[in-house]
Design a binder for these strands. Structure first.
Length: 598
RNA sequence: GCUCCGAUAGUGUAGCACGGCCAAUCAUGUCAGACUCUCACUCUGACGACUGGGGUUCAAAUCCCCAUCGGAGCACCA
């Protein structure tokens, strides 16, 4: 019996079985469902020491997605309790709120930790009274030595009254920085050294950047304490955070136990790195690539072998070598795309990541690994002028993506599709771009933009007004007046030969008659000729067009665009045969556009 | 060194709590073709993975053990 008959037969006997079979095949969309015992309260808790990054977007989106789905409450809480080393930026508070709203994740409540220090003091005092916390005067190294030896420090057994007294003195500024800390009493013999008697408060005399707070406090809570107290005060029921904070839970549970509170449910996700993959030019990849390890321009090693560090003496950093002594390497496949591969099994190796953020690939190509830049690293680079600001297209912030014309829905979907895995991932923004392209392609007008322009004189052509569709699926036309001279791209010119026939898109056909200077003659307007001869179709721009500059993650493109682009300010358009861009500014100097993606 | 976590195609995911519907899902990517006055979009097809080794079982991606690799924490950072 053929399968169709089977289905028919089965349908008549047991229709529910068919339904079940089909249902089974349907993939789960979106985030995994939650098993809730009560109302859902979640928080997203950044330190506003810089604008939200692509990594922050994950937290914003996932938290908001769940609270939307289960009619819960979303709180944004600024964990700004370090006025010194991770000093908050005043502008960043609003940047977070703004980017959240843009992402469709407007929080129900906004909490600023530095406004609520007094509440943390109350809890601290109670903990001291209960014997769950003590003021410690050990020097850092001294305490670490004791801790590693599972030994208590002399202050641990101090009476509660004495601790209370010291605590008051801490609050009133009676100690210098580094002189005293408040520790939570856990288990000094805990098998995990990360858990043993952790610090809840330290003394910082640097004033807080927020004028409302200023120098009001000199005892500041650390994240583990502030977070523990706030999560309880806010009634948080589910916490999703990075794997790096898993130990926090174990530490914080001691506070919850002393106070008789109930700890929220927790979920974790792995480390995220972003790599940009699209900087390989096609000619740098051949299908039958030979693989080398390249360090500082030198070839080492042979493919399909692990690369041993003793074969390489230059520029290998400690972090690039795993504990087996193999270099952590990155490869690309014969298909030409790049992937990070674990060095645990043989793989055609080509390159080495180096600590300075670059990956070497063969001799020609360089890939920037933007995901590796930390907020503080970015801050420094911006101050030094390496980047123009927090929305420089090369910088991995939400602001930069916005400026480039990425739609919030695309970013949301991208983050939701990542899911909640505890696996460490290294991802490519390609998927985000593909998602975004689907959204903007149907609504983006088309224009010509010629980068690295080369003038082309056409004999026998009459000045005319070219008509081209604003969008291939719509009927509105754009009009481009053109004389006997046009501009074309250097990259198109480079491969031209005398006698070659080509089509200037939406204009007419030409035959090349000279290369330097570039000359051609008019040979008609007939499209059939183009189709018959399979002539190349290239785009062009009038010499008196608009000056256009495109800023993209991999550099600047300067050229000339057709008139009309200036009407698209703040919109995303497609520069044909170039890619999508967002028109960022228009003035007498010309047009500045931000590259969205191909 | 101590502790914890993880491992499915190039990339990211689904499946794992309850072993058979899994010769393994979806997206992206790559290749080929169709469409097209763009290298965009759309459509069709192809490619491509359970880290390794043992064990339990009639049956293992799924449970157990070991190995390997990767990541994180052990801060008066968040």
């Amino acid at each position: 019996m053929p399968p169709e008959s089977w289905e028919k037969e089965l349908n008549s006997i047991a229709p529910e079985l068919i339904a079940e079979l089909k249902e089974k095949k349907e993939p789960d969309k979106g985030l995994p469902p939650l098993e809730l015992k009560g109302p859902l309260v979640m928080r997203f808790a950044p330190n506003p020491n810089g604008p939200p990054t692509i990594g922050s977007a994950r937290g914003i989106v996932v938290n908001s997605e769940y609270t939307k789905k289960y009619h819960g409450k979303l709180i944004i809480r600024f964990d700004d309790t370090d006025p010194a080393t991770k000093r908050p930026m005043l502008e960043a508070y609003d940047w977070y709120l703004d980017d959240c709203e843009w992402l469709g994740a407007k929080p129900n409540e906004v909490i600023i930790a530095s406004d609520r220090i007094a509440k943390y003091y109350e809890v601290a005092e109670e903990l001291i009274k209960k014997g769950g916390a003590y003021v410690c005067f050990c020097e850092q190294e001294e305490f670490k030595a004791l801790k590693d030896a599972k030994k208590a420090c002399p202050h641990r057994e101090e009476a509660a009254e004495k601790n209370l007294e010291s605590w008051k003195k801490m609050l009133s500024g009676g100690y210098k920085e580094q002189e005293a800390v408040l520790r939570i009493k856990t288990d000094i013999t805990h098998k995990d050294p990360a858990i043993r008697d952790w610090v809840a408060f330290r003394i910082i005399k640097t004033p807080h950047p927020r004028p409302q707070v200023g120098d009001k406090y000199c005892a500041w809570p650390l994240l583990d304490f502030e977070g523990a107290v706030e999560d309880h005060l806010l009634g948080t029921t589910l916490i999703i955070r990075g794997k790096d904070l898993t130990d926090s839970e174990t530490r914080q549970r001691y506070v919850y136990k002393y106070m008789g509170w109930t700890y929220p449910e927790t979920m974790h996700w792995g480390r995220v790195q972003i790599h940009y993959e699209d900087l390989l030019s096609e000619d740098s990849i051949s299908k039958e690539t030979e693989y080398y390890l390249v360090v500082d321009g030198q070839k080492y090693g042979v493919p399909k072998q692990y690369v041993r560090p003793d074969e390489i003496t230059t520029s290998l950093y400690e972090n690039d070598i795993n504990n087996k002594g193999y270099a952590v390497a990155v490869g690309y496949t014969t298909k030409g795309n790049i992937g990070f591969k674990k060095a645990s099994k043989p793989y055609p190796l080509v390159e080495l990541t180096s600590k300075n953020g670059f990956i070497m690939i063969s001799e020609k190509t360089l890939i920037k690994n933007l995901g590796k830049l930390s907020t503080s690293g970015l801050k420094k680079a911006i101050a030094e002028g390496v980047y123009t600001g927090w929305d420089d297209p090369r910088v991995p912030t939400i602001r930069a993506l916005r400026r480039r014309g990425i739609r919030p829905e695309a970013l949301r979907k991208f983050m939701i599709d990542l899911g909640l895995g505890e696996t460490d991932i290294s991802l490519s923004l390609d998927t985000l771009y593909a998602e975004n392209r689907k959204l903007i392609d149907p609504v983006s007008n088309r224009y010509f933009f010629v980068w690295n322009p080369v003038p082309l004189e056409i004999e026998g052509a009459e000045p005319k007004v070219a008509k081209a569709p604003l969008h291939p699926a719509k009927k509105e036309m754009r009009e481009i007046p053109v004389g006997t001279k046009v501009l074309v791209c250097r990259s198109d010119v480079d491969i031209l030969k005398i006698g070659e026939r080509l089509r200037l898109k939406d204009l007419y056909n030409i035959e090349i008659t000279g290369l330097s200077p570039l000359k051609a003659k008019f040979i008609g307007t007939d499209m059939d000729l183009v189709k018959k001869e399979k002539a190349r179709i290239i785009h062009w721009a009038p010499p008196d067009g608009l000056k256009v500059k495109v800023l993209s993650p991999d550099g600047e493109y300067n050229g000339v665009g057709e008139p009309g682009i200036e009407k698209e300010l703040d919109k995303v358009v497609q520069f044909e045969r170039f890619g999508f861009v967002r028109i960022d500014s228009v003035d007498s100097e010309g047009v500045v556009a931000y590259f969205t993606h191909k």
